[in-house]
Amino acid sequence: MIRDEEPAKRRNEHELGCDLSSISADELRHRISLLEAEIDRIKSEIDRKDAGRKAADSLFGPKV
Rank of each mutant, 00 (worst) to 15 (best):
G61M: 12
K63M: 07
F60C: 06
I2C: 09
M1S: 10
L16D: 06
N12I: 07
A8T: 13
I2N: 11
H14G: 06
D40N: 01
L28K: 04
E6P: 07
A51H: 14
K54P: 03
R29D: 12
P62R: 02
L16Y: 01
V64C: 01
S21A: 04
L20V: 15
I23V: 15
S22C: 11
L16A: 04
R10L: 11
L16Q: 07
I32T: 11
R10E: 09
F60H: 03
K9G: 02
I42R: 09
R31H: 11
S58H: 04
S24F: 08
K63A: 14
C18N: 09
P62I: 13
H30K: 10
L35K: 00
L35I: 13
A51Y: 09
E13M: 05
E13T: 11
I23L: 15
D40E: 10
E13H: 01
I46E: 00
H30S: 12
I46Y: 02
S24I: 01
S44T: 08
S58C: 00
R48D: 08
A51L: 13
S24P: 09
D26P: 11
R3E: 10
R48G: 05
A8Y: 14
L35N: 05
E38C: 00
H30R: 07
E5R: 00
R31A: 05
R41T: 01
R29Q: 12
M1R: 01
S22V: 02
E6S: 13
